[in-house]
Each structure stands twice: as C-alpha cells, then as structure tokens.
Nucleic acid binder design. Structure first.
Lengths: 209, 209
DNA sequence: TAGATTGTTAATCGATTAACAATC
DNA sequence: TAGATTGTTAATCGATTAACAATC
C-alpha cells in the first residue's frame, strides 16, 4: 500500500466503491473493468484507476479487476477487517435507532455497550447491547479500550462529553450532534453527520429561483 | 441573486455559514468581517467572499457584514423561508427518531404526516404527527402536495417506494436507506445520508498504516 | 480623512480527465 | 497472437487563494 497523502475526495469515494463491489459480488459478477464500473457509478474510468493507484495495483491488463479481490482490498484499506470497537454514548431515540438498525459488523465494528443517564434505560439491553450508566464510562473504557464513540447526546453536553472521552483515550468520534467539536489532542478524528446541513442542501436544490 | 451555475462545493458550505451566523447572532454579535469569520470556521476570508459573491453583495466596505442580515440572506438562498412541506415515509426506529428529535422547523420544513405499514403504529400520533397507513399515500399527497419525502423504509422497498412517490409528484427525497436511488423524471433530487459511508470514512482515518 | 474591508480579477493549486505505452 | 485494459504521465478543468482597486 503506497498511500503517501491521499486526498479527502478520494477517501470519501472509497466506501462507494466498496458498496458497488459488494453488490456486484452478491450478484455473482466475477470480473469488472474500470470502464464498466465507471458507467454503473456515473464516473469516469480514469477516476477509478487514478483513485485505486493511490493504494497499489489491483488490476490486470487486458482483464480488469477481480470483483471479490478488489472488494476485499478496499475493505482492507478502509479498515473493515480491523474489528474496531465502538460504544454508543447517548441512548435517546437516535442512539437507539442506530443500535437497533445500523449494521455495525458490516463496517467491521463491534458494538460493545451504550451509555446513558436515564434510569429507565440503564441496566437494560437493546438488541443485545447493555446500557450502562454514564458514571461507568471511565471504568468501562479503561477495561475495553473502544476505538470509536458514537455521539448521540444532547447538543448542550456534546463538547463536554467528547472532552471526557478524549481524556479516556478515545480518538474516533461519529458525531450526530449538530455541534462542531474541536480538540487540541493530536490524532483525534471527528466524522460529522450533520442532518440539518444535509436537509438544507436539499432545500436549496428544490427551491425555485 | 445572481446564481448562474453555483458549484456543489459552494452549496454544501452554505448550511455551515448559516449555522455559524446563527450562533454569532445568538451570542449577540452584530457585525463580522470575512477574515474573523474565516478564522472561526477554519477557512480563508477569500473563500467566504468568493462564495457569497455567487449570490449577490451582502457586505459593506470597511465594515464587513451585518450578522443577522447575512444570516437571513443565506437562509433565503437555502429556502428556509419557503415553508416546504415534508412527510416521513417509514416510521421505524430511525423515522421515529427523526420525528421526535429533528427540528424540521429550524430548516423551514413543516412535518405533516408519517406513513407506515405497521398496524401498531398506524392511527397513532408521534410528537403530534399523525401516522397514516401507506395505502393512504395517494390520497394524502394529492391533497397536501408535500415537497419532500424522508425515506426511512427498509432497503428492499426503497426504490419502489421512491418511484411511487415520484409518480405522485414528489421531487425531493431525503434518503436514509443505504441504497442509491435513481429516476429518469427530471428535477427529482435525492439527498443521501449514507451512515455506512460516513462510518467507513472514520474507520479509514483511525486505521494505522 | 484614514483605516478597514469589501467584491472581483488574476494567479495558483489541486483534482479530474485524456492519452498511451506496457502487458496480460 | 490480437484485443483489451491496466497504471501512469500529461493536459485540462475547476476550485481555492492572493492581490488590489473601489469605497464605506
């Protein structure tokens, strides 16, 4: 794997490649060329080949790519075979929706626990995942060393909660609060899911001008 | 408003400007220069001025921008004052989480109804929003003409449901299914919220290489 | 007025696309 | 072998940044 400095644009396309290759594999497709894949995805063959060349050489001249092999390679680049550990912090409606519906294992994540302050929730299990009290965070993180925290707490406590988790050594945040989080600690990554921004973009596009 | 052809990159930054200006306004800030705003947002003053110039002239030399005025202008560009009507299609965990938690009015949307097939849900109200049977879709849409559908149905029926809604005249889709939707009907807009893609991006960034 | 800051034009940078020699 | 398709280099396109005259 070469990597060097891969641009954000390339990284954000990788999951989409992964998805398409998974679909192709499921449909039983064994081989694919960059031009056919590009046609399906609505991008140029050049872009696919250029993107992949950031990470290595996965094809074969005159043949194209083996679907399952390329899928596995991209999965590896994305880290889906790393068995990352994840906790959900905030088991409100959204946190529970993710626990119940989101296929963490498909992305290579093991969901180990959820945390909340509500006595109605603490002690229960949701889809097999135990809900612990927020006061147990320190003990649990020290013992299980999760890689990622899903932040589904109220906006008002978002930054404070993130700081607390960073102190405990967590470096990856899947942030569903509509707040932009910051940290001066190196190697902390925030991946924001800004619902409001997304809907406003749609609003712009459907507004007649 | 000039508009012409505004790039996707610019459009996706607008909600973020909107958010920052709202915060500033809430904090009581009356005026702001592109350089101070740029510093806060971690982008260049040039970019802000260049972006805004796609839509008109909102500042004043030697002064900068009036925060509340610029906020309102960007809100207008985004269409938040259009009172778009929205329905939620699929009232499972995620649909319910959005109904309960997401502040549709803040984005200028009126949530009029939710639809589901489950007899346990149909007839109930969630946060004041009536849950109707999917069979009532045709009648309801004809009567209320919603602009946007939030798609929170199972993957397996995503495209079929979208097609049905497009037939009924709906042109905006806030798509939470992990499926890429297509349509040959002109002016149909899909705004995808791909949870899996987002988490995989984070996975890439926290994976040591 | 003098200082500050805009809107816009020009320069730079990076990302996408095209072209093609290498080769399966 | 001939045809197909890669990986990579070069060309193009678009987006970001810098510079500055206009002006509040």
């Amino acid at each position: 794997m070469k990597k060097q400095n891969v641009s954000d644009a390339v990284i954000r396309r990788l999951p989409r490649y992964y998805r398409y290759l998974q679909d192709l594999h499921l449909k039983g497709t064994v081989r694919i060329s960059s031009s056919i894949l590009g046609e399906k995805m609505g991008i140029t063959a050049s872009q696919i080949r250029q993107d992949l060349s950031c990470f290595g050489e996965f094809g074969q001249q005159g043949y194209g790519y083996n679907v399952e092999e390329l899928r596995a390679e991209i999965g590896h680049i994305l880290g889906v075979d790393e068995s990352h550990r994840v906790i959900v912090v905030g088991a409100g409606n959204l946190g529970r929706a993710l626990i119940h519906n989101f296929r963490f294992p498909d992305a290579g994540f093991l969901l180990e626990a959820a945390f909340d302050v509500s006595p109605d929730l603490v002690g229960r299990e949701l889809a097999g995942v135990p809900v612990l009290d927020m006061s147990e965070l320190e003990r649990f993180v020290a013992a299980h060393r999760p890689d990622v925290a899903v932040l589904t707490v109220p906006q008002a406590v978002a930054q404070r909660t993130a700081d607390r988790l960073i102190d405990l050594g967590i470096r990856g945040f899947w942030n569903f609060t509509n707040v932009e989080l910051t940290s001066s600690v190196p190697n902390v990554r925030f991946e924001d899911v800004h619902f409001a921004d997304s809907l406003l973009t749609l609003s712009y596009r459907i507004t007649e001008r």
